[in-house]
Design a protein around this nucleic acid. Structure first.
Lengths: 159, 159
DNA sequence: GTACATCGTTAGTGCCACTAACGCAAGCGG
DNA sequence: CCGCTTGCGTTAGTGGCACTAACGATGTAC
């Protein structure tokens, strides 16, 4: 029973215009939408990242997946566990280098990737709802430049 | 000693152009820069948020600060502890409503706020380095529209 | 005066980025 | 062949943060 007249306390102008804070807040909403959306499809952000990387670059070791996706080697273990438990990837020892595992996308994985592609598209639509196509491109371009300037990933593998 | 020729594994195009992922990644860098910058000044993000709110809106109860800043009531306790331990705010029981505490900005708090203002300005400069003034305005405007559309804060007090 | 809402506070959960260390395997120099 | 270094997968653990639940004390509404 929240009062319809509920006066939502106003945030100071200084905070509202702080770009770093804006980024944090918007990303919080965005991440929540994406995380919940993916959870509804029995998936997580990293699942998609790994599946997409595998499709575009082919089978790879876990370390290489780590470098490409930005997921830490240590966290990748459980991601691969989950994916292979669902039959979306296969984990096999690399005969050429016995330190490595070769991770391969299965047919089921490819199918799942299709669906996640569509799902993430609609989730992005939800996040960017108030912007038209040109503005979305603008935003993407600006963010891409910021990201490139700051060196892409934290690059977990790379020291 | 990073090798200048180090071949940074390329991230799939699909991931690079995903706006929700861009937001996450950029914000990770931004948050890190801000958090580390503030840590160097013995402060945290919420310190600034609380101090700024107090200056703009005057003394307030913790619950009201929570509503204005978006910080949860429960987490605000330790923030106020830290701020009052540093002599930047004063916490006193409200004689008019004995459930409440009145949080007041001290002179030292005002001084600190000035310095944090400057610091955060330069940190924002660092984050937005590759963008010129017009582009920064663009970004801020786009983010503000997204934030407004998604309802400002999670509004911890009001759920 | 009884039911309900609000306030400050404590405790705890779950997620995520990140670090440390270990055992194993490969490569390289002598 | 041997020792050193490097990369690999894996386990365990840390710290911060968003968020929930509950409680005692206090205010408000009916």
């Amino acid at each position: 029973m929240t009062d319809p007249m509920e006066e939502r306390a106003t945030t100071p102008a200084r905070l509202r215009s702080l770009p770093t804070r804006l980024l944090s807040l918007v990303t919080m909403h965005s991440d929540r939408i994406v995380t919940e959306g993916l959870a509804g499809a029995d998936a997580r952000k990293w699942h998609y990242a790994v599946l997409a990387t595998l499709e575009e670059a082919g089978p790879a070791s876990q370390a290489e997946l780590s470098r490409r996706t930005g997921v830490y080697r240590s966290d990748l273990v459980s991601v691969i566990n989950e994916l292979s438990a669902r039959g979306l990837v296969e984990r096999a020892p690399d005969p050429a280098d016995r330190r490595r595992n070769v991770i391969t996308l299965t047919e089921a994985g490819r199918d799942r990737l299709r669906r996640l592609d569509a799902l993430l598209g609609s989730l992005a639509d939800e996040v960017l709802a108030p912007l038209d196509a040109a503005e979305r491109d603008q935003l993407t371009a600006l963010l891409t430049r910021l990201l490139d300037h700051h060196g892409g990933h934290p690059a977990p593998g790379g020291g």
